[in-house]
Design a protein around this nucleic acid. Structure first.
Length: 448
RNA sequence: GCGGCUGUAGCUCAGUUGGUUAGAGCACCUGGUUGUGGUCCAGGGGGUCGAGGGUUCGAAUCCCUUCAGCCGCCCCA
């Protein structure tokens, strides 16, 4: 028995979406979708599982322990539930690269999976938005991603006081460290230490660094870089130093000083060379979206990955994109009180039909409901046997209906009652004008 | 894979130093006999107190194990 009870629970790290939960999710997804479409992106999707090699090709065999992977019974092929979309995207683009326009702008919304233990902001299944621009190597592409993300966050009611984009370019820390005497083969370690600078103590940083053969001088330069980046002048100093060591600032400078230099967007981002992103495939600009208190995990992350399409047998193709998950986003929305009570995201019925006549008159009831539904209205009615109008109106109200339609004694004179459940007013209308009256009242509500 | 905290009704929680048939609010259902809601009144269903074992005359309460959840570590898309 004990075994059974857990068998019938949702698996660890997954969520059941009851109507109210799903309504909130649909709200977030609709903001994602509408914003992406209005910025000219076409929606795509791929399979929710892929060949395991798609992921090991890109990330190496170490990733397998973090995936849900499986074989068919007696089968030889390894599959994995998709942990991210980018490999699928690169594969899909590579397969039809010759016939796709430049740039190709795609987005997708769907579930992704990881096999790690769940914790705050990280579940085993989450919904993620991916927005990508393929075939444009100019900073205009990154700028378009960032302005799309800003618009999306604005539509969710966030302000630049609450959310910040931290933008960098991988060449900045690269040439900064090279200028401080690092070897090429030490860069990966230095990026890694930089990435986790905020999570570990200074002692730990030095211990780990020393174990990996990084000099204290270089480790101190990580510290210096991150501290400098807290001020605008300090950031300039770091940029200058990287430039003196070989960093070509043309594109990055154009992104910041030309493409993102409009009044609406300037407040949303800051340059932060300590952002390097863990993923190996990024080749240029990288950015993360954080809420400003630092309490939650990153809301989104992205960057430029110019080598990935050719890794999947496509032509050399520039590309960049970002991904945003629903779990952290929802937490941050809640932290800032930006979500309404969840039932308010459910669709509200146009009409709740109440029948208080005797049995014989019931025959008119369902045909009426059907005809209103045929006209496109969202119509509900009670399944209770009571004729108590008070109770039925209460039910109509709980169902969030806009209007109640009451079939009662007025029907003897061919009249039906329409009651506005928000304002409380009601009127008798002729039976044959019910639909048009309702439609007029509903249109009126939409407008007002 | 490792560590900390927590498991009493669908939800939020009470349950005195272990003591009779385990409680409240919300939610749900039914009534308040013939027509006006976001108030009220009365009733009802629903829990083997996460599960298993142990101590005891007696366990929701003490001990062990296990499962699950949350939070963190590892890892990070």
């Amino acid at each position: 028995m004990a075994v059974k009870t857990h068998t019938f629970q949702a698996p660890k790290g997954t969520r059941d979406f009851y109507p109210q939960d799903l309504a909130v999710r649909k709200y977030i997804e609709s903001v994602w979708r509408k914003t992406a479409i209005s910025h000219g992106f076409d929606e795509i999707d791929g399979p929710t599982f892929e060949h395991l090699e798609l992921y090991t090709t890109k990330s190496g065999p170490g990733i397998v322990s973090e995936l849900f992977s499986f074989k068919r019974d007696k089968g030889a092929t390894d599959y994995a539930l998709r942990p991210e979309f980018t490999p699928t995207l690169a594969r899909m683009y590579a397969a039809q690269a010759g016939s796709l326009p430049k740039p190709t702008k795609w987005f997708s919304i769907g579930p992704y999976f990881r096999a790690e233990r769940p914790q705050r902001g990280r579940l085993r299944e989450h919904i993620q938005l991916n927005v990508d621009i393929i075939g444009d190597d100019s900073p205009a592409a990154e700028a378009e991603l960032i302005t799309t993300a800003i618009e999306l966050l604005t539509r969710l009611s966030f302000t630049s006081d609450q959310i910040q984009f931290k933008i960098s370019h991988r060449d900045i820390p690269k040439f900064f460290f090279l200028g401080r005497g690092a070897q090429e083969n030490q860069l990966e370690i230095l990026f890694d230490l930089t990435d986790r600078y905020h999570k570990i103590s200074k002692d730990e940083l030095h211990n780990r660094g020393n174990d990996l053969g990084i000099s204290n001088t270089l480790l101190d330069s990580i510290d210096e870089m991150i501290l400098q980046c807290r001020t605008e002048d300090g950031t300039k100093t770091i940029l200058d130093e990287a430039r003196n060591s070989g960093f070509d600032p043309t594109n990055f400078g154009a992104l910041l000083e030309h493409y993102l230099d409009s009044p609406g967007t300037r407040d949303w981002f800051c340059v932060d060379p300590s952002i390097v992103r863990g993923l190996a495939y990024y080749t240029g600009t990288v950015f993360e979206i954080h809420e400003t208190t630092g309490k939650e995990r990153a809301i989104a992350g992205g960057g430029r990955y110019d080598k990935l399409v050719e890794l999947f047998d496509g032509p050399p193709t520039a590309a960049c994109g970002f991904a945003m998950g629903d779990v952290v986003l929802r937490l941050v929305l809640e932290d800032h009180g930006l979500l309404k009570p969840s039932e308010q995201y459910l669709p509200s019925p146009d009409v709740f039909v109440i029948n208080v006549r005797d049995e014989e008159s019931q025959i008119n009831f369902m045909p009426l409901v059907s005809s209103l539904r045929s006209a496109g209205l969202h119509v509900r009615h009670s399944y209770k046997s009571t004729r108590n109008v008070g109770k039925l109106l209460s039910e109509a109200n709980k169902a969030r209906a806009k209007f109640a339609v009451i079939l009662g004694k007025e029907l003897d004179e061919g009249k039906i009652v329409i009651k506005d459940l928000q304002g409380g007013s009601q009127e008798d209308v002729a039976e044959d004008t019910l639909l048009e009256t309702l439609q007029a009242r509903l249109a009126n509500r939409e407008g007002g």
